[in-house]
């Protein structure tokens, strides 16, 4: 269940020393190595401009790395022929930060898009799409055009479109950016449900409140480098294990000192977010 350097024999996505730059600019992602194990759930966070969206683009095959190896469903992305891309993309669902709905299509047609491009007939998917739209609370807006919807409604259309094809990975870029905290919670529960059904989930956010609600690993981008913090429960287990092995309670644990500082704290400070409601303070010693 963790995003970690090469622990899973067959991850859905594997990054190996990946670097990325746009044109001749500086490298915005450096030496990224991690696996997204099948069925895992992780957050991706970091300050604005840290390269979260670029990293997501690499995962959903909208960009190629400048160096390093990315394998997606076991396929090396660098040597992938162009005509095999669509098949891989159909296994990936993406919720874009800016939704990217097609404004000339109805809500129904927008959500049906991933099914339509595979050549399916309308009669084959109409019921499923209608059911999904009802489930996200848009059953009465199926014929509406996206520009007439509120931000939160558009967000739900984007999410419905991302999941309608039953993708193996769901990538969401700031999925709660446009909704109130209550709706954010509902969407998070939706993602957790999908994860229980076996979907690998990556949620990019800088909403640390959201991150704290799920016991999941957190990938943090800062200065182009990626730090991975294991989920709370794992850190607790490791801490308990260390405490049982080491009878002296005043010695700082290796987990607290080996990386110097938890990157999450650096990020939180960078974004000037209050840490006062933090409940899992077991690895914080400042």
């Amino acid at each position: 269940m963790t995003a970690s350097p090469h622990s899973d024999p067959e991850p859905v996505v594997r990054f190996d020393n990946v670097g990325m730059r746009y044109g001749r600019g500086p490298e915005i992602l450096r030496d990224l190595s991690f696996d997204l194990p099948r069925g895992s759930f992780q957050f991706l966070t970091g300050p604005s401009g840290a390269g979260k969206t670029s990293l997501l683009k690499l995962i959903y095959l909208a960009a190629k790395p400048s160096r390093g190896l990315i394998s997606c469903f076991g396929r090396d992305v660098a040597t992938l022929p162009r005509d095999e891309l669509p098949d891989l993309r159909r296994r990936i669902g993406v919720v874009f930060q800016e939704f990217r709905l097609l404004n000339h299509l109805s809500v129904f047609d927008n959500v049906a898009l991933p099914l339509r491009v595979t050549g399916k007939k309308r009669s084959d998917y109409a019921e499923d799409v209608a059911e999904l739209l009802a489930w996200v609370g848009l059953g009465d807006k199926m014929s509406a055009l996206p520009p007439t919807l509120s931000g939160g409604e558009q967000q739900r259309v984007a999410i419905a479109r991302a999941v309608v094809g039953q993708p193996e990975i769901l990538i969401a870029d700031e999925p709660t950016g446009n909704v109130d905290p209550e709706m954010g919670m509902r969407l998070l529960r939706l993602f957790a449900e999908l994860n229980k059904l076996g979907t690998t989930i990556v949620i990019a956010t800088h909403d640390l409140q959201l991150v704290r609600m799920v016991d999941a690993p957190v990938m943090t981008l800062a200065n182009g480098h990626l730090h991975i913090r294991p989920p709370r429960s794992q850190r607790q287990r490791e801490a308990d294990l260390r405490n049982s092995l080491d009878p002296e309670p005043d010695m700082p644990s290796p987990a607290d000192t080996d990386s110097g500082e938890d990157p999450m704290d650096a990020v939180a400070r960078a974004m000037e977010m209050p840490e006062d409601d933090e409940t899992d303070g077991e690895d914080r010693d400042e």
Binding site: A112, E127, A130
Partner: peptide, 20 residues
């Protein structure tokens, strides 16, 4: 899910290319 499922909108699928 309730019994009264919403019906998909009638009519054909909208053109994927923008009308213009």
């Amino acid at each position: 899910m309730s019994d009264d499922l919403p019906r998909p909108p009638s009519g054909g699928a909208g053109a994927l290319l923008p009308p213009d």
